[in-house]
């Protein structure tokens, strides 16, 4: 368990790491890092699945800002949590779990997460 809360929604999946500072627009939720596979996609309202966080620690504030602007993911699954994303998820009250049994998620799948107990349920 990383960040408390429950969420269910459509998965947005990346097999790469994400730097929220400089990588995601805090006012729209759109990925603005041109080199990122999710470039131009929006994280808003999604269960965001990615490997791990990277980059500046200011990234935590970006997650908080996304949440305040209503543009945050509704839940986060990381293969390995690291402090920038974990702290940002807690600041923004975004449910987050890490270390799924397998990292076999697909875009558009309906995924439910339980941040109280660290559980993940894929619905199809």
């Amino acid at each position: 368990m990383i960040s408390r809360g429950r969420a269910k929604g459509e998965a947005l999946v990346s097999s790469e790491s994400i730097s929220f500072f400089g990588g995601v627009d805090p006012s729209t939720g759109t990925v603005m890092d041109k080199k990122h596979p999710l470039f131009n996609r929006s994280v808003a309202g999604k269960i965001l699945v990615f490997t791990t966080g990277k980059g500046s620690t200011v990234g935590s504030y970006v997650l908080y800002q996304l949440a305040k602007n209503g543009k945050a993911p509704i839940g986060i699954i990381c293969r390995e949590a690291e402090p920038i994303v974990a702290v940002g998820a807690i600041m923004g009250s975004i449910p987050m779990v890490d270390q799924p049994d397998t990292f076999d998620f697909k875009d558009g799948q309906t995924v439910a997460i339980d941040g109280y107990n660290g559980l993940i349920l894929v619905e199809d």
Partner: peptide, 9 residues
């Protein structure tokens, strides 16, 4: 919550 999450990680 922040301290515990970091502790877990």
């Amino acid at each position: 919550e922040i301290l515990v999450a970091l502790g877990e990680i």
